[in-house]
Nucleic acid binder design. Structure first.
Lengths: 243, 243
DNA sequence: TAGTCTATCCCTACGATGTAAGGTGTCAAC
DNA sequence: GTTGACACCTTACATCGTAGGGATAGACTA
């Protein structure tokens, strides 16, 4: 429903057509930080980070670039804002009482978020200030809460949070920067296989053998493998400290 | 020793001073793809990714921006090239025969590389093409070889590689994007603690309690924790499939 | 030695970027 | 009706990546 509105505005781009119509009551949907951020996220998802320019966002909203500055500090503020919007989309999984299953579901939810907006990884990698808005903090709070219910010490909760967070972040980064099929373009499959074929087999025997395998494997299965590793490691830790 | 040369060149910036001196034998160190990439890496390490511009690299090498195009295709090619140079720095740890210790050492070596050049994470996140140069592939080959000697199936080797790679990538990304003390600026410590103090404690009880803890924890210890998780998970997997 | 070739480098210019500074219009309150 | 606040527009600037085209110097031919 908000999309509808925004598309309508795309058509009211006529620049300063100062006829009598300008004096109608509702000239146009007023600009908002909210609307700017949503447009930015949409452009970023559809055309990548480099398409997100002030002029482009202005065009998208039927407004000149400079008008955006009445609602946001900076372009950087927009980029930070995108992270907010994305994090606000976090789908808190409902809890089952099975701790390991819940941790797994939480990790998947987090991954889903990044996969749905792959470019946010680049945003994270460039972002200057650490998270501070409630939207970005709420999923963290939830994760801490969940981890805390598994019998870990406070230190271990913090460490586990960063371990899982790191793994999720990184595996999505790898998946996005070095895509494998199962999700996304299949081009890279052929690319990998071809690369493996061209490599000098004496110098790169393992790559020659395993690169095609890697190209074949499904991204989600892959993610689950590492997740299993982490969770079984965590279980061992809990059992050890419990005994 | 190459650094010496490059610094000397910084001082020969005089633009087109067409006096008789131009006819001396060795006018200046000739430009090379190699030299361009090294300069780019240096600028990036010292002043961040946005300082890496064609004009800036030219200035750094005593040359006009456009001259760079005789040796590299694109700015993007330079960025890809930086990854090459960095990966060529990979310090292969010497192997001890203890598989787990070797895996651990490999992971640390990989992390060290990223920590020494934190901005490469952003490069990875934006890079279009997957790795293809031998410099970037050699550490991969080595890692595959190492993992393969632990009793894993080929599928498991691939999965383990991606799991460890993801974890390393992501934990460095988190460390760099959301720095904690122990390495780097201590400012963010105070920032975290202050943030925790300002948060509404009823909505964010865990963050209020754990954020200061997180700010205190050492990045390396943190990394080791996740590494332990992964390795002990892997051990369990090896034992299970061996039995 | 003179002439030509080719690689390397410089110069100029174009469109696009983020944003500072200041102008224009509209509406609410007096 | 006047005023002030606010949202928006216009113009202008420095800086970016890079296309196009000259200049120059060292190597090769004659």
């Amino acid at each position: 429903m908000p999309e509808k509105l925004e598309h309508l505005e795309n058509e009211s781009v006529e620049p300063t057509q100062g006829d009598g119509e300008t004096s109608t009551l509702r000239r146009r949907e007023p600009l908002t930080r909210e609307r700017i951020l949503r447009a930015a996220l949409r452009v970023m998802d559809e055309e990548g980070l480099e398409a997100v320019t002030m002029r482009r966002l202005g065009r998208e909203l039927g407004v000149e670039a400079m008008s955006l500055y009445n609602h946001v500090e900076d372009k950087e503020a927009i980029l930070d804002g995108i992270l907010e919007v994305v994090m606000a989309e976090f789908q808190f999984p409902e809890e089952t009482g099975d701790w390991e299953a819940d941790v797994r579901a939480g990790a998947r939810a987090w991954r889903r978020l990044m996969i749905d907006h792959p470019t946010v990884i680049a945003l994270f990698a460039e972002s200057k200030h650490p998270a501070s808005s409630p939207e970005r903090l709420r999923p963290m709070e939830w994760a801490f809460d969940l981890l805390g219910r598994g019998g870990l010490s406070e230190d271990e909760v913090v460490h586990a949070f960063r371990a899982f967070g790191g793994y999720i972040m990184g595996s999505v980064l790898n998946e996005v920067a070095n895509p494998v099929p199962g999700m996304g373009d299949r081009d890279h499959h052929a690319e990998h296989v071809q690369l493996a074929g061209e490599l000098p087999p004496t110098e790169f025997p393992n790559l020659v053998r395993l690169l095609p395998l890697m190209a074949e494997c499904d991204a989600e299965v892959d993610f689950e493998f590492g997740l299993d590793l982490l969770i079984s490691g965590l279980r061992a830790k809990v059992e050890a400290s419990g005994a």
